[in-house]
Design a protein around this nucleic acid. Structure first.
Lengths: 224, 224
DNA sequence: CCTTGGACTTGAACACGTTCAACACAAGGA
DNA sequence: TCCTTGTGTTGAACGTGTTCAAGTCCAAGG
């Protein structure tokens, strides 16, 4: 019966997350995690071949748990700006207790070759889901997105969100006041730029930017 | 006499860089490095308390060795665009043989708390020197930089360079063709934006952007 | 009831970064 | 000449992530 096995896996993952949250990623050893879960060290590796896999499982778990709240954010009325802000806030709220723990990981974020990077092959599914959230936000907004931007714009917004989250993770100001500030100051500009970019007049500029996005995205998909 | 000690240090560093280049950072063990340098393992740690310190020493070494070529690039005639391009090329040329090795490190690049990050306290000196290069390039250019941008503009250009270098490191296309493309497509725009930003008309926009830079830079300087 | 095959589980063992107590040695000072 | 002091130098030992040979357990087939 698979249920027993599933139980064990869950027990180990929960023990791991408990320790990660309490004392950080690097500070929690696999031996401790196994002990906390009352299993042998090797068993933790049976279910999670690398310590990092525990983090991947964390990503997936949180992503799933966040889903209803994301739906709610997208269902809210309000303008595009409101929707984007709501989406970002869901992430802040949800990752709130794990800010420190995430900080320990985010070293990997720049390296698309690293499995835990938000740009990696292994996080692709989660990433696509995140991008889709912004696609929906755009579809449900007052904004008329020109044909040639339909694909790129959600990606750009997702990148913007990633930037905010990264900034938030490293934001040592009390209550992450600075991130608030940055979000307030930048979100308006971003939406303004989006709107401006839709003007027919802007077609040449769009072409240029899409070219750039192409080069960059091409590189990413070439990883591995 | 300090000379003997300096010799030993150098011997270890050279052995380390040789191995790093041959087979990468993670793949070279401290035991191998010590062995290659014909010393005991502990001695490598006497001179370089962490394996990472070998990388720091590499940064410093390369930075010093690059200096004359940077001067040359800055002394060249040509327009601002040429100077910036020349500066970036010096880095590509110099890091060329170490692209793979750098790739293994650049995971750290996003984490300003990590010593090896280009944004960390420990790399501050090197970073400042890099920023100063762009300050010089601007001073020697045809561009009239408005007072309120004098401080920020070199930083922005340095960030642009870091972006290019990062992209180049992960660029798996043959001969890093894609980076070429990106540089060609983006550099013109960057310079155009710089010029446009100097127009008196743009003052409100400048204010906005400088505000943003302030929030971001404030965060960075608050790191440790 | 026994056997068998595969999923599950164990803990010792390995390689690595790192630490450390001990030793070597040169340069003064007595 | 012997002692002292401080810089170099050594290699064993520790804690960590990870691997693995050797079990244990249990459902299905005989």
């Amino acid at each position: 019966m698979a249920a027993k096995s599933e139980e064990t896996r869950k027990k180990i993952l929960e023990a791991a997350l408990r320790l990660f949250r309490e004392r950080g990623f690097a500070e929690s050893t696999m031996r401790e995690i196994a002990q906390e879960a009352k299993v042998a060290t090797g068993l933790a590796y049976y279910y999670f071949p690398k310590k990092e896999d525990l983090v991947m499982a964390f990503y997936v778990k949180v992503n799933a748990e966040m889903r209803p709240r994301v739906e709610a954010a997208l269902a809210s009325h309000g303008k595009l700006e409101q929707k984007i802000r709501a989406l970002v806030y869901v992430k802040f709220d949800y990752f709130g207790p794990d800010r420190k723990f995430l900080g320990a990981l985010s070293g990997y974020s720049a390296d698309p070759g690293h499995r835990l990077s938000p740009f990696s092959e292994e996080t692709k599914e989660i990433r696509e889901e995140g991008i889709a959230q912004f696609r929906t936000a755009l579809e449900r907004s007052e904004l008329k997105v020109p044909e040639d931007l339909v694909e790129a714009m959600p990606k750009i917004l997702w990148m913007y969100q990633m930037g905010m989250v990264l900034f938030w993770i490293y934001d040592r100001s009390e209550g992450q006041r600075r991130t608030q500030l940055l979000l307030d100051k930048s979100l308006g500009i971003v939406v303004l730029l989006l709107k401006a970019s839709s003007l027919p007049l802007m077609r040449p500029v769009r072409k240029l930017i899409l070219d750039l996005v192409d080069v960059i995205a091409g590189e990413q998909s070439a990883v591995y």
